[in-house]
Design a protein around this nucleic acid. Structure first.
Lengths: 326, 326
DNA sequence: ATGAAAGCGCTAACAA
DNA sequence: TTGTTAGCGCTTTCAT
């Protein structure tokens, strides 16, 4: 692999000039620039980004750490992040922690050292204070932590809306199928559900506990929900809701006649499911874009204040999976 | 940020020793190691991977470039790659080209310079020969190119199976909804379809052309398919098939009574769709794992031969979206 | 507009 | 087992 030295020698200039041709081309007079470019392409020279990074401290890259790329929610976040990052001239490197909380600190560290900043999305573990204290350039998505910028959906309100919707349909016994115990967003959902119960004295939320936030986790919860006698269920996310509904259908129960189901996030699977799913819609990719903005803002020289934006908005989308209580 | 020098000074050893404590701990006697580790954590020292990379040429990282992470197919590939990479002690950095062929060379280059090797999955553009010639460590997935290792699904056979299935159900006029024109996998599908027509003299495949390989692309094709008078359609992938079916349903057509639909890849959306989708099943994540093996094999010192493995297998899964011809 | 010199932080010989 | 000595390829002052 040709280096900057080879090009400099071939073009009869210094390495500095070659460096400028690739970095600040307008600082090099055209004749020289053309000569250098010719030499570079003749030798098949490509700048070594690692060396550049070591020297300059800039990568032109942002890192994104998500729990599970197979979940459409995180795939959409990723798209939003990528689109906005690209507008800022940045490339996005994505890492999937595979819902494994233990791996998060390692991946965070790995990304932090090879990017200009990292977006930590829905972490399943509390972040190691050390990592934060090291002054790494981090923005949280759907989580909050003292000393870090963040964007988050107001899942508490989402749950209140869901509960009100079910209550209006006559449901009084509603099961909640939880997501990862350690996740901020599950905590917020539970908070909202508690608030809903405080509002309506005769509303009972039956907490079924925590399940894996995938199709399988939802399926596992379905039989438990039925056994409680609940007439409606609120499920942590759409993917789980799909698994949940699928299991009910397998058992011959009809939706929503025998069980109403509400999901969360309005990923594309919600509308194409066998029974279209009532769910809480969020502009997910917009939130990803916003996270990049926060990162850029945080990185910009003048501004050194943290930003914990307003709760990211959303709205309940009613589809066929919810109906009047039997 | 503390450097290796600070730690060395604090612990009263050389930088080499510090380096070894983090790289080959067993080469350092315990007492020294503990002293160094104490100094390191007191200073909050973290090795700078970029510097290490520049010097050693190893990253412990593999890159994966895919067209669209929101497509469950690529999300699954990613999971497979990650799982196997992890077993090999490697971390995966994923980049999504957003179905934009022009961006591929840049991303490939970017990944190649910051990883030990890259997996190029379903490229939408022909790879720039230069990139390959630069001796980059690349493995292709679902594509083939002279001089590169690869794993690919036998999509030609998949299409033959799909066509035979529809033929057996009495369909004689079958529409094909194509994917990206420049993709290897669309070419293979068309090849298989042609082979199927050669086999059955009275089978007509009506080529509807190329569509965006997303839900929207499938929806766009639906009306065209209906207009041709075809009684069945084979759609490039499951996501498109979902959009395709959704549009048919919107128009009041029933599936499979008025139109049978076959998808491809058997991603999880296929089985949870309103009408469960007949599709060609592939062990997608297994293929991702295999790609990592090829990369490792290719990288290993002794072996310097390319591997273009056997076609990755699959089988047709029949569900409710296909039925006898009207 | 261009060049010379000095490292970025680390690891890999080679010595001791 | 530990240390010394050289860089990896590039960018960045500071000159010219």
């Amino acid at each position: 692999m040709a280096t900057i030295h080879d090009v400099a020698a071939a073009a009869g200039v210094s390495t500095t000039t070659v460096s400028r041709v690739f970095g600040q081309p307008n600082q090099v007079i055209e004749s020289t620039r053309l000569r250098v470019q010719a030499a570079a392409s003749a030798l098949g020279y490509r700048p070594n980004r690692v060396a550049a990074l070591l020297r300059s401290g800039k990568t032109g890259t942002v890192g994104l750490l998500v729990p599970d790329l197979e979940n459409p929610y995180f795939a959409m976040i990723t798209k939003g992040v990528q689109a906005r990052a690209r507008e800022s001239g940045l490339t996005t490197f994505v890492v999937d922690s595979d819902e494994n909380a233990e791996r998060e600190p390692k991946f965070l560290q790995l990304l932090a050292t090879q990017t200009d900043g990292v977006l930590l999305c829905s972490p399943r573990a509390l972040i190691d204070d050390a990592a934060v204290a090291q002054g790494q350039n981090v923005v949280l998505v759907n989580s909050t932590l003292e000393g870090l910028s963040s964007v988050s959906v107001d899942y508490a309100t989402a749950m209140v809306k869901a509960a009100e919707h079910l209550y209006a349909l006559g449901h009084r016994h509603v099961a909640y199928v939880g997501g990862p115990q350690t996740s901020w967003s599950d905590k917020m959902r539970r908070k909202g559900l508690t608030a809903a119960m405080d509002q309506k004295a005769d509303l009972h939320i039956i907490d079924l506990g925590s399940f894996v936030p995938k199709v399988t986790g939802g399926a596992a919860a379905a039989d438990l929900a039925v056994a409680t006698g609940a007439t409606a269920s609120i499920v942590f996310n759409d993917l789980m809701a799909i698994g949940f509904m699928n299991r009910l259908t397998e058992r011959g129960l009809s939706i929503p006649a025998q069980m109403s189901v509400v999901g969360c996030d309005d990923t594309f699977v919600a509308q194409f499911a066998a029974v279209p799913l009532t769910t809480f819609h969020i502009d997910i990719s917009g939130m990803g874009a916003r996270a990049v903005d926060l990162l850029n803002q945080q990185t910009s020289p003048g501004n050194h204040s943290l930003v914990t934006g307003m709760p990211w908005p959303g709205e309940l989308v009613v589809r066929a999976s919810t109906g009047v209580a039997p």
